[in-house]
């Protein structure tokens, strides 16, 4: 199934986001090899050079480590993964805060609603 992309960001950024999320969700474990660029390109129906650029971004972030001629692996450095998780959470919360602000809700109401939502989430309701 080809991946779909929205219009607001470059395709390579969206691929990097998607791979980063897959790693943070544990779809790929620390030390595990991710599929080769070519295979990802065919699955996603995306240009291989664009996929390579996304992989390059994740290498620069330290989330992926390439071993020459052996492909790319998820880092085993727990600190790097923890930082990536923090960054992803920060971004999510910043988006949420901005959108909540646009609804002109007061801060306490939003925090209260968020707490309730997360309690429901945890108890599986």
């Amino acid at each position: 199934m080809a991946w779909s992309f929205h219009e607001r960001a470059p395709v390579y950024v969206q691929i990097a986001d998607r791979l980063r999320n897959a790693i943070l969700k544990g779809e790929y474990s620390p030390g595990e090899q991710i599929p080769p660029v070519r295979q990802l390109a065919v699955t996603a129906a995306v240009n291989p050079n664009t996929v390579q650029r996304a992989v390059g971004e994740l290498e620069a972030e330290g989330i992926l480590v390439s071993r020459t001629t052996q492909g790319c692996y998820v880092t085993e450095d727990a600190a790097v993964l923890a930082r990536a998780q923090q960054n992803a959470a920060k971004k999510l919360i910043a988006d949420f805060a901005r959108q909540a602000g646009e609804l002109s809700l007061d801060r306490d109401t939003v925090i209260h609603m968020l707490q309730e939502e997360m309690t429901d989430e945890c108890t599986g309701m």
């Binding site: 199934m1 080809a2 390109a41 065919v42 699955t43 129906a45 995306v46 240009n47 291989p48």
Partner: peptide, 12 residues
Amino acid sequence: REYILSTIVGNY
């Protein structure tokens, strides 16, 4: 269409 685009990419 998706299959064809994947084929084009696979042919890279």
